[in-house]
């Protein structure tokens, strides 16, 4: 069944041959003066079979935990899943939208199938953040971003390349449109691919974190890690970061 587009949202396209699309709330509907753009991209390929329900639960836990942040009204969160079973390899569960408008109960079940377009997921996640931040910047909204790519395996079906991902991350680092961007690649149940994923992280600038073998406890910790990192990045945007040690001179 086709998804009905929320009239408060608009669709944009990331540059490049792939023409990845994403959606975000129209700036005229924004209620805060600055935002942290959060993206969670979850592996939905055949290999997550067996813990797909826990993955969905981790997504929900992470998003619900973000709602408790003191700066939750300054977050816009986008959730995507990636697998070659989706057209273009990416399925957007929802675009960048305020947490108060996100109903995690409607998150569909993860259906494990298809190959792993990991590079496409990373490229589109970072690219969408950059493009949307540019839009916010044009409308005088300050923003920073944080992207989590959660995978249990290496790329085996992408049109994007590590060089393209690096270029997108470097674009953010220049800080022309976005104040800062944190990009995290999370490996879960990915011990067999650890070396490859570490290499991918080094090649692109994604910070790689290996969670180890999947357990309910590990997924709960992953959700906690996501919400803590989001909260910290949001605080960095609004206040210059946590309280700094005092040097009582100018």
């Amino acid at each position: 069944m086709p998804k009905l587009m929320d009239p408060n949202m608009e669709v944009a396209t990331i540059g490049g041959l792939q023409q990845f699309k994403f959606s975000g709330v129209r700036t005229e509907h924004l209620g805060a003066t600055e935002y942290t753009l959060v993206t969670i991209a979850t592996d939905s390929t055949g290999s997550v079979s067996g813990f797909e329900a826990d993955l969905r639960k981790a997504e929900i836990t992470a998003v619900e935990a973000c709602k408790k942040s003191p700066r939750s009204n300054n977050l816009l969160l986008r959730l995507v899943r990636f697998s070659t079973s989706f057209p273009s390899g990416i399925e957007e569960i929802h675009g960048f939208k305020p947490l108060s408008e996100i109903d995690t109960a409607t998150y569909p079940a993860v259906v494990p199938q298809g190959m792993t377009p990991l590079y496409d997921a990373a490229f589109s996640a970072v690219g969408a953040t950059n493009v949307y931040a540019e839009k916010l910047n044009a409308d005088e909204y300050l923003s920073n971003g944080i992207v989590f790519i959660i995978t249990d395996g290496d790329d085996n079906e992408s049109r994007s390349t590590p060089a393209m991902i690096r270029k997108e991350i470097e674009k953010a680092v220049k800080g022309e449109h976005i104040e800062s961007l944190i990009t995290v690649l999370v490996g879960i149940n990915a011990t067999a691919f650890q070396q490859r994923l570490e290499e991918f992280g080094r090649d692109t600038g994604l910070k790689y974190i290996d969670v180890g073998d999947v357990t309910k406890g590990k997924l709960a910790k992953l959700a906690d890690f996501v919400s803590q990192s989001v909260s910290s990045q949001s605080q960095a945007l609004g206040t210059g970061g946590p309280s700094q040690s005092i040097a009582a001179t100018i």
Binding site: G31, P70, S100
Partner: peptide, 8 residues
Amino acid sequence: PRLFTNDF
């Protein structure tokens, strides 16, 4: 910070 925002 929540009271800074129009939404909240």
